[in-house]
Write a protein that binds this DNA or RNA. Structure first.
Lengths: 261, 261
DNA sequence: CAGTGGTCTAGACCACACT
DNA sequence: GTGTGGTCTAGACCACTGC
């Protein structure tokens, strides 16, 4: 960590040209990479606090300000959470106020919690082999074992979301319908505590579609009811895809909210 | 700008309790507020450069680091753009690489520019009086003059987006169908140069709907085709709503893309 | 070359939480 | 009070742009 020779030992930025540009990487970016490694390796677990800024500065032999800037960026990406006077903590999905960070469906009237918590109903949960498109989304090979889950979320007693989701079989060994049904809380929180998989970011593709007969029955809607199709790929650290989710949202009394900035 | 008495002269943070908490506001937040004022007042116009960090530090009698942190936040919010070696510039919608910052519809295959630029077709443009819901969205009174525009966007020759938008009549005096048709570029860029209105952020509510007969004709789809309804309220500086837009997106070959993080 | 933003440091002090 | 993150400063040096 010698700042007189700031070479790129943690190569995160992809060079545009081949063999050109020594790919200068600032110190704080390298520190960021090191902290990221500790997060991935599980040295600091979700909900736990990481060492203080001074302590990390000592460990990495840099100034507090440099550690600070690294942590700033990780906190901006919601990987860490700073709490003044207490410390810096590994972000987790098991917190009340960020529980629905990835769920953008909100009631047309009132705020998010006006309807109380969603009722979750596991419809199906089985192991099978990845089809071509599922394998592609999860960076697996066709035929690799995957776990498929189907569930319905209801708000105020009305079925509103039908979700099919696929998980790579290996990291999620031992996940069963019972395990899912018994757990009360965000699914991603269960993934953290039981399987050490923390979802960090996701991409969603949204379309308008019509339901097939099975979907009509589960959501209690007619054939002509337009629904929101939300296809999500969620990623852990390292941009590793860990979940494919296809959701059907009923937007009679709810809407998908998105803030552009 | 005396940092030994950091009182809240630029009250941005809303206090939770009444008459409690002296609402401490850090220096860099106050600087941020001052820069924001200069942006609103038009002292620095979109595309222009603002004074250098050192110059601003001198003007506000603070250190460069403090100005830096203020600019950092404004740049994070896309109000300013930093360019190393050149200066800091007021963000604008008239730039190639951020032209579609607020348009999240992308083709299913290929990237954003694979289809070439969108063809814009102004269908209608007239002045009328605000209905109750439009007035509410634009923070006007019912009956206030508004401008209504209807247009169709086509990609690769196929009509894909039908948009109705409402603008407050006062700031947009002189905006005509001809003016809109003649302008080739993002609509928000025209708003900047011609009317001094810069859109800073927006909220979108997304639903799945079916088109009425008029909409079917304009988008060339059948009655049963599900479409994405995207209702947007766009804001200038100060969280002032300046546009209500209701879009219908055809998602046969495109999808609304959203990155969650 | 000068001017700009970008990085890094060292130290002082403030605000907050816990004990 | 002690320890944590948060703010502010002053100065040095690096990287990029354009004259």
């Amino acid at each position: 960590m010698n700042n007189t020779s700031p070479s790129a030992d943690t190569a995160l930025a992809a060079p545009d040209n081949l063999a050109a540009t020594p790919a200068f990487s600032p110190l704080y970016q390298q520190i960021k990479g090191l902290i990221l490694q500790s997060l991935q390796s599980g040295e600091w677990k979700p909900g736990e606090s990481i060492p203080s800024e001074m302590e990390l500065a000592g460990r990495y032999r840099v100034s507090q300000g440099t550690v600070r800037k690294a942590i700033d960026e990780l906190a901006a990406g919601h990987l860490l959470v700073r709490r003044q006077g207490k410390g810096t903590f590994v972000a987790t999905h098991a917190e009340q106020h960020v529980q629905y960070r990835f769920l953008k469906l909100v009631p047309d009237t009132g705020n998010l919690d006006s309807e109380g918590p969603a009722q979750r109903q596991i419809v199906d949960c089985k192991r099978l082999r990845a089809t071509a498109d599922i394998a592609r989304a999860l960076a697996l090979r066709p035929g690799d074992p995957v776990l498929q889950v189907r569930r319905v979320l209801s708000f105020a007693g009305e079925p509103t979301i039908l979700e099919d989701l696929w998980l790579p079989g290996n990291p999620f060994k031992g996940l069963t319908a019972e395990r899912l049904s018994d757990y009360h809380g965000p699914m991603y929180a269960l993934f953290e505590t039981e399987f050490g998989v923390r979802m960090v970011r996701a991409d969603e593709k949204i379309r308008a579609v019509l339901p097939d007969t099975a979907q009509q029955a589960l959501l209690n809607v007619t054939a002509g009811t337009p629904l929101l199709s939300v296809e999500r790929v969620a990623y852990t650290y390292n941009d590793t895809p860990m979940e494919l989710r296809r959701g059907l949202y009923c937007t009679e009394k709810h809407h998908y909210h998105n803030a552009l900035s």
